[in-house]
Amino acid sequence: MEYIVETKNLTKRFGKEQAVSGLEMKIPKGEIYGFLGPNGAGKTTTIRMLLGLMRPTSGSVHIFQKDLRKERIRILNKVGSLVENPSYYPHLTAGENLEALRKIIGVPKTRIKEVLKIVRLEDVANKKVKGFSMGMKQRLGIAASLLNNPELLILDEPTNGLDPSGIIEIRQLIQRLPHDYGMTVIISSHLLSEIDQMATTVGVVSKGKMIFQDSIEEMRKFAKQKVVLKVSDSESAWRALLARGMRADWDEKNITLLNQSDENVATAVKYLVKDGFSIYRVEEEKKSLEDVFLQMTKEERLV
């Protein structure tokens, strides 16, 4: 398999602290690679090494099958990036900010208008970035990362600081990119739900180590959510469900269904109604990232 990004034993130490250790990242072409991990897991450090902003303590990075150490500039020609908080020049307008990058990249001037349009900032092109909201700055950062029509786009927590509508907008934009422009996208996040909604492939890091790397479907098996029923007289209701051969748990208050497929939930509800219980709530209990990690490490799905 040919990978757009492939790291081998990628390691970064800060003093005694091992921020990234032995990372083997493999990203096939056209994927949206969700790079998932809690704060401090080493996502930004990894991304900085992918961009040549940081020198690895050991290990190697290959992008487009080329060695980053030897062909950094040739590689970066086709990479767009947004690392951590967006960078900008507050005293310049949005247009001037992009112009300052465009001149170096060497794409035609019309490209500025195009990327501003993609992130819907064309109306404020002549306004100083100083007065922009956090969301607008973030969008400007994404516009900047798209300037050179990259084949690989690397976005480090791009929805940080955005309001819900901004998050949806960015998500829709990112989901279009592989199809519309043939891009491969890396997107990092500490939110399981965010990766779940966007990514096609997932890499999970914890304390600098990759503890899982596979398709989103494989990851969903770990992230399965529980369905919780709140009913009247929950103990009897639970016993009634068990009597009808359903698998469920009871915790003194609520009933938890162990098989949360749509049919199973529907059947359980039907039985409860038939048996004369009142159903107050049928809820999905979200699993936290920590729960998923626990499960991944427990099942020793070390990659």
């Binding site: 961009l51 500039i73 990479v79 990036s81 951590e84 960078s87 020049y89």
Partner: peptide
Amino acid sequence: SIENETNAWKQLIALPVS
């Protein structure tokens, strides 16, 4: 300070420049 203010160094040096 122009580059330091919003840490634009990382954006600048992630461009294809030496």
